[in-house]
Design a protein around this nucleic acid. Structure first.
Lengths: 133, 133
DNA sequence: AGTTGACCTGGAGTGCACTCCAGGTCGTAG
DNA sequence: CTACGACCTGGAGTGCACTCCAGGTCAACT
């Protein structure tokens, strides 16, 4: 199957402008063109875009995604380096998750504090016995 | 205790420039000054900076941090709104963690593929094909 | 007295990742 | 035949979050 740029944008979740941008900066090999010169994205193109958006979500900078894309073009000889990039990225994602987990704990603590304040305002807090609202 | 801007930068993990920048954009109330007019950060200032960096780590935009900072200045009446901001942020952090977890799974899958390729190259697992990266 | 180093100010510059624009070409619908 | 909408190109503009700079003050050391 092949897809117009609008369809590719819809399926990848990227904007049309971003698709052309990714092509310009060589994240994406130039897709085929139809007889009128319009881009015709293949399923392979879409799969690659799907993977790219995953990498992007992990916070990988475009520079590194470009490196990975460029290695891919160099075939099997680059597999080691590509794997190393992914392993490093996995490490950084795991780290980021842990960091976010820590932030979640801080948020929970703060939110609980606000809840305690609400309780206190309602006079329900233990130690304030005899005062019921 | 009070701290020079260099010391505050060291303790908060922010740069000196960023500290002044945060003050300019009203993320941080202007700290006290010493006799020579130099900033003298208090422990409260540092605690607030610590919380700000947590919020930043969660990806909260400066705009929202400013809103939170501004509410804080309006005292207890703004507690409800502040709590709501934090609850919303907690939701978004939890979502982000889940998203990253999904990316981690994709990375693991890809990395495993590379490992399978390595096995194949070593001739340990003949008959395996269809390894695309 | 002079030099050094940390700090000050207002404002300009940077890098990233898009996003938008003007002006033009196609192919189909009315 | 013309109007329309989707697409094309090269290039300019945007928003975010810093980061850097020039030129100046001040206290402490030599």
């Amino acid at each position: 199957m092949s897809y117009s740029i609008a369809e590719a944008a819809r399926r990848s979740g990227l904007s049309i402008d971003t698709l052309r941008y990714y092509e310009r900066i060589k994240l994406l090999d130039p897709p085929a063109r139809d007889t009128a010169g319009r881009r015709a994205y293949s399923d392979d193109d879409l799969n690659w875009l799907g993977f790219l958006t995953k990498l992007r979500t992990t916070g990988m900078p475009i520079k590194s995604m470009r490196e990975y894309a460029s290695l891919r073009r160099h075939g099997v000889a680059s597999a080691g380096r590509r794997k190393a990039l992914l392993v490093e990225q996995r490490r950084s994602v795991a780290e980021r998750i842990a960091e976010l987990q820590g932030c979640l704990d801080v948020l929970d603590y703060k939110i609980e504090n606000y809840e305690r304040v609400e309780q206190k305002v309602l006079g329900i807090e233990p130690g304030m016995e005899g005062i019921s609202a």
